[in-house]
Every structure is written in C-alpha cells, then in structure tokens.
C-alpha cells in the first residue's frame, strides 16, 4: 500500500469526487436536519413564519416527541420489528442450513430461489401482498370455495409483520448462508461421533459458531424494519402506524419540519444503538468463533 503523501495528486483525484458528494449530499443535509431538530418556526411580526426558523432555539421537538402518542409509535416500531426479525431468523436458519448441506449442484439454484425476491421492488412486493390478502383477494376467494370467510386479513399488526418478513427474509438468509458455508463440518461430525445428539450438536457447536452470521442477519433485518413506513402504511393502515409514518406525515402533510427532524433523529439514535449492540456482541462472540 502506498502512502498518500508520495502520490498526492493521484490520491486527491481519486478520493475527492466521492468525498465531495458525501459532503454535499449527505453530511450537509444531515447536519441541517440535526440543527432543525432543535429549532422552531420563527415568529416574525407576531406571525408564525412558514419558511423561516429560529435555529437552536428549543428542545421542545424532542420533548413533544417524547409525548405518549409518539412514544407509542416508536415502541410499536421497536417490537413489530423485533417480532419480524425473530420470525425471519426462525425461518431462515433451517433454510440456510439446508442450502449449505444440499448436494453441490443444487446449491446455487436453491440459494437463487430464496434470494431472488430481494431484487423485486419493495413497493411491488407490498402491493402484491395487499392484493392477495385483501377481502376480495385470492386467499379469501380460495377460502370462500370451502365455505369460509371472507376474513379481514389486513389492517392489523400481523399483516404488517407478515409483510416485513416477506420483504426482509432474504436479508437474513444471505449472511446466514455465508457463515454456515464457512463452517468446518468436521466439528459437527466430531460432535456426533462422540455421541452428542443432533440437538446438542446444534446448540453447542453449530449455533455458537455461526453466531456472527446470526447477528449480521438480525441487524440487516432489524434496522430497515425500524424505519419502515410503506409496509405499515399499505398493509397496516392508520392504526398500525410506526415512527416512519409519523416522520413522513410531518414532512408531507402536517408540515412541521422541526418535529419531523427530531423524530427522524430519534430513529437514527435507535439505529445507532442497534449497531453498537451488534459491535459489542460480535466482539464478545469472537472468543467462541476462534
């Protein structure tokens, strides 16, 4: 690796477009959002201005967001995402295991089948879910043939969780697959040879060794679930709104930007806390991994 000082011009040419872009379209907007979250609408000549803001004037946005109604939305995002992540893990682990232990010539096609939906637009997936589970959808029609229903399957928390699992399952399968694939099988064989049962082998050997992949999968699913607003909007309806919907609403309809900014920073803090937890757990599990 070269020292950048020896090739200043090459280094600066290579590094500047990306850095500049990040500065202008990421750092500056994010800083601005951060500042705005401590601001309020300016009052000019006794009237509340629609465009001007008094910067760094208040903590109200955070306290207003800490009011119960918004805490409910945040709390709902946290636990809905947690359940969805758990369901993804429970489904994805055996599937990833099956793909890794399948005959080599089946492996690529099995993996492809499982992760192909990952490339289909989130909105289209959600709309597809919506159209088959709505009260006149295919599922209710099929139930109708055997004399059941129609049931109202949408506009509840289960529908939101199902939608999240549908969209984010591939995010769990991929990291699990890549960890289990690297797993040294002789450990499993040794454990089984020495008389441990399949269950014992799983919990004492396979699971601890693949924990890093599990953690990566959990983060990859949990973080986008936290910020979701499309799934809860289309499948859940207004009673199942999460913090993402509240942010969208503040910006597109209620037009209270400082409050929306505070809400989105609360979401960012939650995300960073999740990332820190992951880093801590990953470091601790290294002992087992080695």
């Amino acid at each position: 690796m070269d020292d950048w000082k020896d090739f200043r011009r090459v280094f600066l040419t290579l590094a500047s477009p990306g850095s500049l872009w990040m500065l202008i379209f990421f750092i500056i907007p994010m800083t601005f959002l951060f500042v705005l979250s401590f601001s309020s609408k300016a009052i000019i000549n006794g009237e509340t201005s629609t465009t001007a803001y008094a910067y760094f004037s208040t903590f109200d946005n955070y306290f207003a967001s800490a009011g119960t109604s918004y805490l409910v939305l945040l709390w709902r995002a946290i636990w809905t995402s947690a359940i969805a992540t758990f369901v993804c893990l429970v489904l994805a682990y055996p599937l990833a295991l099956a793909v890794c232990f399948a005959p080599p010539r089946w492996r690529p096609i099995m993996l492809l089948l499982l992760i192909l939906p990952f490339w289909i637009n989130l909105l289209i997936c959600t709309y597809a879910m919506y159209s088959i589970f709505r009260s006149t959808g295919v599922v209710n029609q099929a139930l109708g043939l055997v004399g059941l229903g129609p049931y109202e399957m949408l506009n509840n928390t289960t529908a939101v969780i199902m939608g999240l699992v549908y969209v984010y399952l591939p995010f769990m399968i991929l990291p699990l697959y890549s960890t289990i694939e690297k797993l040294d099988r002789s450990f499993l064989e040794a454990s089984l040879d020495l008389g441990a049962s399949q269950a014992r082998t799983f919990w004492s050997v396979t699971w601890p060794l693949t924990l890093p992949g599990v953690i990566t999968g959990i983060i990859l699913v949990y973080i986008p679930c936290l910020g979701t607003f499309l799934t809860s909007d289309i499948l859940g309806g207004p009673n199942n709104w999460t913090i993402g919907n509240a942010i969208q609403n503040q910006f597109l309809e209620a037009n209270n930007w400082p409050f929306g900014a505070a809400l989105s920073f609360i979401l960012m803090y939650a995300t960073f806390i999740a990332l820190i937890i992951r880093a801590v757990v990953a470091r601790r599990s290294k002992g087992v991994d080695a």
Binding site: F25, F26, I28, P29, M30, F32, L33, L36, I223, P224, L226, G227, F229, G244, I247, Q248, F251, W257, G260, A261, S264, F265, L267, M268, T271, L275
Partner: peptide, 15 residues
Amino acid sequence: IVVPEICMGISLAMF
C-alpha cells in the same frame, strides 16, 4: 448503506 432511508430522504428534501 446503514442510515434509515427515510432519514436520508427527508434530509435531502430539506436540503
């Protein structure tokens, strides 16, 4: 890659 999309979206909207 890691920041929630909605946060990046609104920061750009304001910008």
